[in-house]
Design a protein around this nucleic acid. Structure first.
Length: 149
DNA sequence: ATTATGACCGTTG
DNA sequence: CCAACGGCCATAA
């Protein structure tokens, strides 16, 4: 992050709660969507950015999810960003927490086992936000497609 | 308006 | 199997 601007700038989290100047056309920023989903994550459960993105209706990309989490710390109520990991189950965002170890600590407190900064039973503790509308379409995708190469 | 970056993901080499 | 690249949408300069 060389030219890292300022993600938690007033135009991010602040906007989510209180509309400022940079958001007129949109009543709510896409941050709110992410926050809402993340807050839905049950305790002791984790999810991936991609899952959140899909839960958001694919309107966003995993990257935007992570970017939105930047304002999570300033969001109200606080967003359990520690329950959000990448598809590899790694605590990629731990570095962005007040303390790099805080994310792991929180997860362990909830009963999630962390191994080498990664979720042990990631697939087990993994929680899918679920797509209410595209629920039926989800079946068509068949999860058995897990095979990689 | 254009360029560059990002708490990612999937495919290609 | 491991490494590298591009794609995706949004924000900041």
């Amino acid at each position: 992050m060389k030219t890292y601007p300022n993600p938690k700038s007033p135009s991010s989290a602040k906007n989510a709660a209180t509309k400022k100047k940079t958001d007129d056309p949109k009543p709510v920023s896409f941050f709110d969507v992410v926050y809402k989903i993340v807050r839905k994550i049950p305790k002791g459960r984790v999810t991936t950015y991609g899952a959140i993105a899909e839960a958001a209706d694919i309107k966003l990309t995993p990257r935007m999810v992570g970017w939105a989490m930047n304002g999570a710390g300033s969001a109200n109520p606080a967003v359990p960003a520690h329950r959000v990991v990448n598809r590899n189950g790694e605590l990629s965002g731990r570095q962005f927490f007040p303390t790099p170890t805080l994310m792991q600590e929180l997860l362990e407190q909830e009963g999630v086992t962390i191994k080498n900064d990664k979720v042990s039973d990631f697939k087990t503790v993994f929680w899918d936000p679920g797509k209410p509308k595209t629920a039926s379409a989800k079946k068509a995708v068949k999860k058995t497609v897990k095979k990689k190469a």
